[in-house]
Amino acid sequence: DETGKFLVLALYDYQEKSPREVTMKKGDILTLLNSTNKDWWKVEVNGRQGFVPAAYVKFL
């Protein structure tokens, strides 16, 4: 149950560059965990948590 969690859509592919980031593919649906930083949002994708560039995702 994803109640209270926001979902975001990956607009572009992103390859993680550090262990704190996660890789996503364009079209992936991600669970948004934290968006307090304007540049990097914490998400969960494929069972992994990490950061992606905020400009690469949008709210569903």
Rank of each mutant, 00 (worst) to 15 (best):
G47W: 03
A55P: 09
L9T: 12
F51T: 03
F59K: 14
K26A: 13
V8Y: 08
L60F: 12
W41R: 02
L30M: 13
M24R: 00
A10Q: 01
P53V: 02
T31K: 13
K42E: 15
Y12M: 12
F59S: 09
R48C: 05
K5I: 13
Q49P: 07
I29H: 06
D13S: 08
P53C: 03
G50R: 01
V8S: 03
F6A: 14
L9C: 08
Y56F: 13
G50W: 02
E44C: 09
W41C: 05
F6R: 14
S18D: 14
L60K: 06
G4S: 14
D28I: 03
W40N: 01
V43E: 00
A55I: 11
P19V: 09
Y14G: 01
M24P: 00
P53D: 01
A55E: 13
E16D: 05
W40C: 05
E44L: 08
Y12C: 09
L11P: 00
L11Q: 05
K17H: 09
K58T: 14
E44W: 05
Y12G: 06
L7G: 04
W40R: 03
Y56S: 12
F6K: 14
G4R: 10
G27I: 01
Y56I: 06
L33F: 04
E21N: 05
N34G: 07
W40K: 02
K58Q: 15
I29K: 06
D39F: 14
Y12N: 09
Q15D: 14
V45Q: 09
N37P: 04
D28K: 03
K25H: 10
N46S: 10
R48Q: 08
D28F: 03
L60V: 11
F59Q: 12
L11Y: 04
W40D: 01
K38E: 11
K38M: 10
W40F: 08
K17V: 09
T36N: 15
P53A: 02
T23S: 15
V57Y: 01
W40H: 03
E21H: 06
A55N: 14
A54M: 05
V43S: 00
S35Y: 11
G50T: 02
V22K: 01
M24L: 10
T23F: 03
K38Y: 08
E44T: 07
G47I: 02
E16Y: 04
L30Q: 01
D39V: 14
G4K: 14
L30D: 00
R20Q: 15
R48P: 01
V57C: 09
W41T: 04
T3R: 04
E44R: 07
Y56T: 08
D28T: 07
Y56M: 12
N34V: 07
P19L: 09
L7K: 11
E2L: 14
E21I: 03
D13G: 05
L11I: 12
D1P: 15
L33P: 00
Q49A: 12
G27V: 01
S18H: 13
W40A: 02
R20D: 15
T31Y: 11
D39M: 09
S35T: 11
K26M: 08
F6L: 13
F59H: 13
K25M: 11
P53Y: 02
K25E: 06
T3I: 12
N34H: 07
G27C: 05
K5P: 14
V22G: 02
N46L: 07
T23N: 07
Q49S: 15
K38S: 12
M24W: 02
K38N: 14
Y56Q: 06
D13W: 02
S18C: 08
G27L: 02
F6T: 14
K25S: 10
V45C: 08
P53F: 02
V52A: 04
A10H: 02
G47Q: 06
S35Q: 11
D28E: 13
T3D: 12
Q49V: 13
D13T: 05
Q15G: 08
E21V: 04
M24C: 06
R20P: 06
A55C: 09
P19C: 08
E16H: 08
T31C: 09
Y14C: 02
W41I: 09
F51G: 01
A54I: 03
D28M: 10
L30V: 08
F59N: 09
T36L: 10
S18E: 10
F59A: 13
K5V: 10
T3W: 12
V8L: 15
L33A: 02
W41K: 02
V57K: 00
T23D: 04
G47T: 05
Y14R: 03
D13N: 09
V8H: 04
D28S: 06
F59E: 14
K38L: 08
W40Y: 08
D13C: 04
G50D: 00
W40I: 03
Q49C: 08
S35G: 12
T23H: 04
N37Q: 10
V52N: 00
L11A: 07
L7H: 10
I29S: 04
K17A: 11
V57L: 15
D28G: 03
G47V: 02
E16K: 15
G47M: 05
L33W: 05
V45W: 08
D1Y: 07
L60S: 06
I29T: 07
L7Q: 10
S18W: 06
K17G: 08
T36W: 10
S35A: 15
S18Y: 07
K42R: 13
N46K: 10
D28R: 02
Q15K: 11
P53H: 02
D1T: 11
G27W: 05
V45G: 07
K42C: 10
L33Y: 05
G4Y: 08
F6N: 13
E2C: 09
S35D: 13
W41P: 03
T3Y: 13
L30R: 00
V57H: 00
D1Q: 12
F6C: 11
V8T: 04
T3P: 12
E21Y: 05
M24D: 00
P19N: 11
A55H: 11
K25Q: 11
K58L: 13
G50P: 00
K26R: 13
Y12W: 12
G50E: 01
A54F: 02
N46E: 12
E21C: 06
Y56W: 07
A54L: 02
N34Y: 07
E16C: 09
D39T: 14
N37L: 08
K26W: 03
E16I: 05
V22Y: 03
W40M: 06
K26Y: 04
L9W: 07
N37T: 06
F6P: 13
Q49R: 12
Y14K: 01
W41N: 01
L32D: 00
K17Q: 15
L11W: 04
L30K: 00
R48W: 03
